[in-house]
Structures are given as structure tokens and as C-alpha cells.
Design a protein around this nucleic acid. Structure first.
Length: 378
RNA sequence: GGGAGCGUUCCCGAGCGGCCAAAGGGGGCAGACUGUAAAUCUGUUGUCACUGACUUCGGUGGUCCGAAUCCACCCGCUCCCA
């Protein structure tokens, strides 16, 4: 397992990450399948066809349903999901944020009430690692606290310090689990997560702390939770120079195509976001010509594909008018085609980013597309 | 032939004398969505010269200061008994 820096342009990096489940070319977008399913009716077979390199699933969700022990008994998440390429599992730390009304934080860990039936679920660093070990993902994320924005300095510091203590426990627990006989993936990696809200000093101090642990990768978490994009970019600039150059960097939960272009420019290698799949389910589609809402009346008689320049299954075979009809009729196929399209777009975006860095043309690539892929409508 | 109902804004449907351009759904139109409690949520949906005016609750004519709401007749529909 190693990260090779193939080339860089400015701070933008073109890398290659070798894992037990295969090679990942970076920068890369991880396709989000929280419950071992891409919402909208997209399968792991589909992911293969649209250029997905890494899939992301969630510890909290799979623990609740169907249960990580069940998945372990069935041979692990790769087998269960029928996906032999890398899988990254998020730790449950984001649910500390998104399910804030259903949890209580203690030093030991987080007491959740299940969003499904309210039953008590305790998840601390050890539990998160045990669950992720049972799933056998390629990359396990450290159990952290994703803090809401804005957060007071005092609380931000308290949460960040606690996240650091949790990280030490994650490290020890995963080392123990990996060494146990019968572990699904004894080479499971641990990536640490930088926190500190929007405070430069907390971010920097925490980054320095966690890089001393020599983990397999480093993530920047707690961003894109309501702060302006400029603040997010600034935090990346604060933290990035402190990240080990020979380890992959992951900006969690980000983002829009423009966010990704900007973050790659600032040295980030890995991304994930629900935006392409969620927006697709709601009719918002990304194209190289800008964003479009396929539900708009103006597409009623439009026989063009979503985008002439797209090679995705939806664009190869169907018209805007037809796909709009499917959305209007609330057919499952609408979401499926929309999600396939948006994920294809995101994966292609990353491919083009890689090609541009390879060609030493990333800066001009960015300058060209940031304008088009912004809020501009087709 | 006898009896009982019903007709509301694009649709369904509430309203039963003023606080009604008219609840609530649906549909339409538009917007949001960033480590997925999201096939969700928000706004809007008679017209205009839009802090006001005008038209609208099957039709026509009445009662009343005032009618979607009350009365008469007409038109259309439903059900029950023969």
C-alpha cells in the first residue's frame, strides 16, 4: 500500500494509490453508497460501467441495517456489495453532525437514538473500528466529531481535542483488530480526520498532532457544513502545507464541481459527496455546459440528450423530453438515469482533472471550467 | 311518475351571510440540496395599472348595507321508491 506522487502543477497533485483492492488514480471522486447501495437504483455493476474507482459506504448505517456482524458472516462488504475495487467506510462521525438531535456526546463516545426506530446505539472509537473491521473496507475512517458551523471557539477546541483522543483509540483498536485471526481485511487502513472548525490555529495544531501518528491517509473534515466556500478554501490552504506529502489527502463531503476544482488546485486528492446522486434524484443534472434542471418546462419538447458531450448511458440513449417525462411521472428510471448521468459526469470530471495535471495544463483547465460549471444554467 | 341530494378557482375538495380570491390535497411553475434521517424541502399558482382595483364559486333573476353561502326559476348530474 503506497501513495505515489506522479506529478504536480503548483499544489495540484496527480497521484496513484495502491491498495489491496487495486489501484486508485488521483485526484478521485468516491461514489457514495451509504447503505451499500447508490440511491436511485444504481448498482455496483453500474459503477463499473461509469468509471467509478472507489465506493464509499457508512459505518453507522450499515451497523443499524443490516448489521456489520451479518456482513462479516457473509464474507465482508466487498462480497456483499459485489464490488472488488476499493471501498472507503465513513466512521459515523458525520452522523454526530447530521443526527445532532438524536445523539449525546461523551468522552467515551456517542449515544445515538437510531433514526429508524429510536433504539439506543452507542458508538465510540472502538465500536466504529470494530464495525468497519467487520465490514472489511479498504480504508477505515477515524471516528471523529463533525462540528456544526458556526461553532464557538471554546467548543471547537474541546471537540477537536476529543477527536484527537478518539483517533489514538481508533489507531490502537484497529491495530488490534487487524492482527486478529479471521479478520476480513487484515490490511485495513486508517485515515485520520483533521478538525478545528473555521479556526486556523485549531486546524493547524490538530493537523500537526495527527500527522505525527503516521497514518495511511489524512482527511480534512468538518467543512462544507454551511460556511462560505471561501472559508473552506482558506482552511484547506491553512492545513494542506502541514499534511504529509507522501500520503493521500481527502476533503470529506465535498462538493460541487467548482469546489472540487478549487480544492484540487489546493492539493487535495480524494473527494466524496452526495451532491451528484441527491441532485440527480431531484432533477438537477451537471453537464460540461453548466447545470440544468431536467424538470423545467423548456425541456418538454427537447429531443437532445441531457448533454451532447456526455457519453453516459442516459445521454447515449435518451432525450431530455423522455427523461423529463420520467421525472414527471415519478418513474424510478428517472432517478436511475439521472444518477448514472451525474456520477458519470463526476467521474469524468476527475479523469479530465487528472489528464490536465498530467499535461501540465491544470491551471488553464480550471480557469476555463470554473466559470462554466459555476451557477451557470445550460 | 314520487322522493332525496349535488354542481366551488386546472383537478379533487372545504366553506354555508361580512375576517373569502376562497382551507387542505393533487397537479402546474420555479428554487434549494456538499463525509445521505432527503424519490426530500421551500416558494409560487384568477387578472391587472398589484400596500389597491377588477372578474370568479352551473345559469338567470331576486332578498340584503353586504351572497360561494338565503330565495325563485332554469340547465346538468347522482341516488332511492314506483
Amino acid at each position: 500500500m503506497s501513495f505515489t506522487l506522479l506529478k504536480h502543477e503548483g499544489r495540484a497533485r496527480r497521484g496513484r494509490f495502491e491498495t489491496v483492492h487495486g489501484t486508485i488514480e488521483t485526484p478521485v471522486f468516491m461514489n457514495v453508497g451509504t447503505s451499500a447501495a447508490i440511491k436511485g437504483g444504481v448498482s455496483s455493476m453500474d459503477l463499473r460501467e461509469i468509471g467509478c474507482q472507489v465506493e464509499l459506504s457508512n459505518t453507522y448505517h450499515l451497523h443499524i441495517r443490516p448489521g456489520d456482524k451479518l456482513i462479516r458472516e457473509l464474507g465482508g462488504l466487498h462480497k456483499f456489495f459485489n464490488w472488488d475495487k476499493p471501498i472507503l467506510t465513513d466512521s459515523g462521525g458525520f452522523q454526530v453532525f447530521s443526527l445532532a438531535k438524536l445523539r449525546k456526546i461523551t468522552e467515551e463516545g456517542v449515544h445515538f437514538n437510531s433514526h429508524l426506530d429510536g433504539r439506543a446505539i452507542f458508538m465510540g472509537p472502538e465500536e466504529s473500528m470494530q464495525i468497519q473491521s467487520n465490514l472489511g473496507s479498504t480504508i477505515a475512517m477515524a471516528f471523529d466529531e463533525c462540528v456544526e458551523n458556526p461553532a464557538e471557539y471554546g467548543y471547537a477546541k474541546e471537540a477537536t481535542d476529543r477527536t484527537y483522543r478518539w483517533l489514538l483509540r481508533c489507531r490502537d483498536e484497529l491495530a488490534r483488530l487487524n492482527a486478529m485471526p479471521g479478520t476480513i481485511n487484515p490490511h485495513q487502513m486508517l485515515w485520520g480526520i483533521n478538525q478545528g472548525c473555521t479556526y486556523d490555529d485549531l486546524r493547524a495544531e490538530h493537523m500537526k498532532q495527527i500527522r505525527e501518528l503516521d497514518l495511511d491517509g489524512y482527511a480534512i473534515g468538518g467543512l462544507a457544513v454551511g460556511e462560505p466556500a471561501e472559508v473552506m478554501y482558506h482552511i484547506i490552504e491553512v492545513v494542506e502545507p502541514l499534511m504529509p506529502a507522501d500520503k493521500p489527502r481527502y476533503l470529506m463531503g465535498v462538493g460541487t464541481p467548482v469546489n472540487i476544482l478549487e480544492a484540487v488546485w489546493r492539493g487535495v486528492d480524494f473527494f466524496d459527496c452526495v451532491m451528484p446522486s441527491r441532485n440527480a434524484r431531484h432533477g438537477a443534472l451537471f453537464t460540461w455546459e453548466g447545470r440544468l434542471n431536467i424538470l423545467n418546462e423548456k425541456y418538454m419538447y427537447d429531443t437532445d440528450p441531457i448533454s451532447e458531450s456526455c457519453g453516459c448511458p442516459a445521454c447515449r440513449h435518451y432525450s431530455r423530453a423522455y427523461i423529463r417525462h420520467l421525472f414527471k411521472a415519478k418513474e424510478i428510471l428517472a432517478m436511475r438515469l439521472g444518477v448514472l448521468h451525474n456520477l458519470y459526469f463526476y467521474n469524468e470530471l476527475m479523469q479530465k482533472i487528472r489528464d490536465a495535471i498530467d499535461a501540465g495544463a491544470y491551471e488553464s483547465f480550471c480557469r476555463h471550467y470554473i466559470d462554466i460549471l459555476g451557477e451557470r444554467d445550460v
